[in-house]
Write a protein that binds this DNA or RNA. Structure first.
Lengths: 160, 160
DNA sequence: CGAAATTAGTTTCATATGCAACTGATTTTG
DNA sequence: CAAAATCAGTTGCATATGAAACTAATTTCG
């Protein structure tokens, strides 16, 4: 546990952070400019584009958003007629959400834009390196979740 | 430019975003809990730990922060006697910042914690995959910066 | 030299975010 | 069955954030 030097530009959490920031901004600028959609809103739209009909809770789980964020994004999108909402008559706490006509159009317009952007980013990485990146991100997310759980347990006194 | 399906869980910008979020949180929880330091404050401290003495402007450039963020983090850290500030008598707009005694202590305590965390995250990735991840992040950041510039130029009408 | 432009850094303001408290509905359990 | 606990989703509140306006200092240039 020797205190080696820490060089910010080589430190993984820092690099991940600035890279994701740049990547995310580059894409968000496009669709926000063209469709007035925020990042959380895009997440909701893409979740529903992928799964047709979900509750807010499902969306939160699928897109790793907290329920406040989902609630607000959904409210705005309903307001703008981008989503449709159908109450679950079997459990009136929840409601099924899906893309309205306008939502379909927006989704259909953003998807190629997003995939094109992704392609550009990865353009000159060899296939093998892209595969390695994929694996690495999977492992990192998994480990980070584990570590987060560990540290929270320690802070909260473990026995809950 | 065919509108292939977009699967959120496989879409690079999304994966980067959630991974960095988990990674960043896992580390930030530790030092915020132990030292009451925020992420921007840690960035400033680590920049100064690495480079001894810098102006706010240098810090912003080195740690990819905007000047508002630096200004606020520095103000808090000065307040808490974690930094020292020495006005540049040759150019009184700027000031040189460096870690105070307390800042050194905090830095010395966080660095091993941060490196340990990084080690844990990368624990079961083979050396070759880590190297591939490094290269990939470098390329991605570079491409994303390029794309951001391109899109901004397009939006602002290019000829500035 | 002196006006205009530029720069470092701060502050204002409008927006984004998340936790925690809340509402209304459903489920659990004594 | 009724009280307590849980759950889906919303809202209030306090904090975080960044763009743009601002201040004070320096540089540029007519």
């Amino acid at each position: 546990m020797a205190a080696r030097r820490l060089i910010l530009s080589q430190f993984l959490p820092y690099r991940l952070s600035i890279t994701m920031q740049a990547v995310s901004e580059g894409l968000a600028t496009r669709y926000s400019h063209e469709f007035g959609i925020t990042v959380p809103e895009w997440r909701v739209i893409s979740a529903l584009g992928e799964h047709q009909e979900m509750t807010a809770r499902d969306i939160a789980a699928h897109a790793r958003m907290n329920k406040t964020m989902v609630s607000r994004a959904v409210a705005t999108l309903l307001e703008r007629n981008i989503l449709l909402r159908r109450e679950n008559s079997g459990d009136r706490r929840e409601a099924f959400l899906r893309l309205a006509r306008r939502g379909d159009d927006i989704y259909a317009a953003i998807v190629p834009m997003a995939l094109d952007y992704e392609r550009k980013l990865l353009r000159d990485l060899p296939k093998a390196e892209i595969a390695a990146l994929d694996r690495a991100l999977t492992v990192l997310l998994h480990r980070a979740d584990e570590e987060a759980r560990a540290i929270n347990d320690k802070i909260n006194g473990d026995a809950e």
